[in-house]
Design a protein around this nucleic acid. Structure first.
Lengths: 270, 270
DNA sequence: CTCCTCCAAAGATCTGATGAATTCACGGGT
DNA sequence: ACCCGTGAATTCATCAGATCTTTGGAGGAG
């Protein structure tokens, strides 16, 4: 059904869309592989039957999507097509989501991040563990200040989560989590503003996650991460209620968690 | 007013990128909301300091991303910005993934789909249950034929998974799963080709999932879906080894450093 | 009041020209 | 023989003007 092949479909598709479909087909057909160089603008436009204007529009769109890469004075090339590259625009898309959908994005995080942590526990390197420890040390040094640097705190949190996502060994995991983490950066910022203690408890949750990772214990890492993300999710949902009275849905909290008992200690939120 | 305020950054950002950032900022700042109409091309170009060429390139890119929508003779508008709309290009991105990354995408499915099934079990409507049953009936009618219609079988599978994803009530879940399902359509096609029995077993797994959904039992739905996706994953991984022995890529298999702003030495794996 | 026709507005496309950045070869110097 | 600076050629980036197509609404005919 997704295969829309109407040879004589005329004005329905814009010329730029023709360009996008054409280049995409060149890639899927194997004519263009990762790193291949595309024909010059003039020639490519002639081949696809479009002028340089729409051609450039289509190429530009593919550049934004991370599929193509143009280098002035050199040419246009196909990117590595790696997940980390292709899912990059997903961050911008998540950024534009309306606040009501934030709970939905957090729902995805709540599922993906614990699994990423479990994977990371099995395969994380000593270097990454040391790096994670450094990140958390940086975060704790911020707590000593009387006036907490929110920007730096968010950076610490983002770096920590990204490190774990990358250590999971699944680029798709890492890319999606990466996009969602940057989206919720603002939510966590509010959390820090409204509730200073949250900074400390978050730091403790991070420490617990790191401990589980260092022990290479996937179950513990999963649970720790689960509790951590759940805390963020609940906080966001709660504060969304008071800032936006017209809540659409409010996710059902009735889902039990993956066969593991949730009653682990350290859940000190609210 | 002038968004061009990086005197020393210079040509790092193309004019089209300026347009994209400018429009995105208009949306995040609240100047443009869902359904808003953008200024006309000339005016918008003047405001952003770019000509109509790059302006159209940037607008086109945002159209592809599902953020804007242009109607000839009318104007350019901001879309609804719903997750289902914004994550639409994700399908095309997943489609371009190299086969080696297929296992990674399936890893995401293995995590997301069981959770989506659990959610769906709690909130699926009777109409959707009936629709799901109709889909599976359609699939079983295909099995009676001596010559199995692979195309129709794939459609059945796709429709079934999409229905469950949508019934989960989480648009983000549905959008991501939707993209991944369409990607793996080909893998399932091969499965059907190489192993005819897989069609029957898949159908049986689908039935088991539907039964759990009808019982509104999230745990059973989760487990049934988990087994189902795991089967696809294992099959794909096994056949990937024998169909593509040589890895295309020449670069490091590790995750390359992503463009994180803070230059705090990320994990460098050699 | 309804329907049809016509026109202005706005995006879509084409064409030509100019600027900017990169690459590569050439030639001179060491 | 090797290294390095310089310039032309190539290619993308941008700008500007003109024309076509589609849309939506105004205004008149029935």
């Amino acid at each position: 059904m997704t295969s829309e092949n109407t040879p004589e479909a005329g004005p329905a598709r814009s010329r730029a869309q023709v360009v996008i479909d054409g280049i995409r087909q060149m890639i899927t057909s194997g004519e263009l592989v990762a790193g291949s160089r595309l024909p010059v603008e003039r020639e490519l436009g002639t081949r696809l039957g479009v002028s340089r204007g729409p051609l450039r529009e289509g190429v530009r769109a593919l550049v934004i999507l991370g599929i193509l890469e143009t280098r002035q004075g050199d040419g246009t090339y196909v990117t590595s097509l790696e997940p980390g590259r292709l899912f990059e625009p997903l961050g911008m898309l998540a950024e534009l989501q309306s606040p009501e959908n934030n709970v939905h994005l957090l729902g995805v995080r709540r599922v993906l991040e614990p699994e990423a942590a479990a994977h990371a526990a099995l395969r994380i390197s000593d270097d990454d563990l040391a790096e994670a420890a450094r990140i958390l040390d940086r975060g704790e040094s911020l707590l000593t200040d009387e006036r907490i640097d929110l920007e730096a705190t968010i950076d610490v949190d983002t770096d920590f989560h990204r490190l774990i996502a990358n250590a999971s060994g699944n680029p798709a995991f890492a890319a999606i989590i990466d996009a969602l983490v940057s989206r919720t950066a603002r939510a966590r910022l509010w959390r820090a503003i409204h509730q200073h203690d949250a900074v400390h408890s978050t730091q403790q949750e991070h420490r617990a996650i790191l401990t589980a990772l260092a022990a290479h214990d996937p179950d513990r890492a999963r649970i720790r991460m689960m509790v951590h993300v759940l805390g963020v999710e609940e906080y966001t949902a709660a504060h969304l209620d008071e800032s936006a009275p017209e809540i659409v849905d409010g996710g059902e909290p009735g889902i039990a968690g993956r066969g593991v008992a949730g009653g682990l200690g350290q859940a000190q939120e609210a």
